[in-house]
Design a binder for these strands. Structure first.
Lengths: 112, 112
DNA sequence: TCCACATACCTATCATTTCGAGGTATTGTC
DNA sequence: GACAATACCTCGAAATGATAGGTATGTGGA
């Protein structure tokens, strides 16, 4: 079909990035924590794994949207991330784009 | 960044398929017409081109969601598509999935 | 003690989807 | 006659997500 082998069922283009940025807007978090948070806060609707989240965090950091702060915590090495001003701007842009697409799809789904 | 080279700006995974099915629920349409309709009804927010729509129509037909009916109209060869019962089911499933993801993202964006 | 599990990080590869460029042919307009 | 619009098509590149692995430490139970 339109081949639908997506574990999450599709409709997720760009969503993980948006969610990461939004979560970090409220508080500093580390990667593993973000993976769990997305699962919990979406009621297991979005279950993006570490194989997606970690590379995304690295890309966002390299792009200047996030700042990384390594820290030891009980023998465990964690990397905490915070939003930079660039990240905040990116979050606003993505949020805006998300609602635009949302409205657009809604207009077709339930017309006039 | 998360590299954002999508002409439409992201957030479109699976959306074109959903829109096609929804449009065909109301009336028989041909490919070129669908491309224009998506553009118009979304106010140019979603501008998926023929390079995306035609292959999608073929895949949906092959998958049994659509039935194709070729017809000549004023020297112009058009291929009209209609929904099969399988296509209707697929439309319901995608619509459902779309709102689930929508709610899930919303929960993260505006918590509390 | 040993084993399994949760934590916490990472990469590589594959599948899917979208985008852009290009190609054919007809009709209508300047 | 040239050009835009109509109407179909395919190919290849790029981006994204999913899956499957791989490393290491701490904790709890048998």
């Amino acid at each position: 079909m339109a081949d639908e082998k997506r574990g999450n069922g599709g409709f997720l283009a760009g969503v993980p990035e948006l969610l990461i940025l939004r979560l970090l807007q409220d508080q500093e978090m580390y990667g593993y924590e973000i993976v769990q948070a997305i699962r919990q806060q979406t009621g297991d609707v979005i279950t993006s794994g570490e194989g997606l989240i970690y590379p995304l965090l690295h890309a966002l950091e390299k792009g200047g949207a996030l700042r990384a702060r390594p820290q030891e915590a009980g023998g465990r090495r964690r990397i905490y991330y915070t939003l930079t001003s660039k990240g905040v701007r990116r979050l606003f842009d993505l949020t805006d784009e998300w609602s635009r697409v949302n409205r657009a799809v809604g207009q077709v789904l339930r017309p006039g």
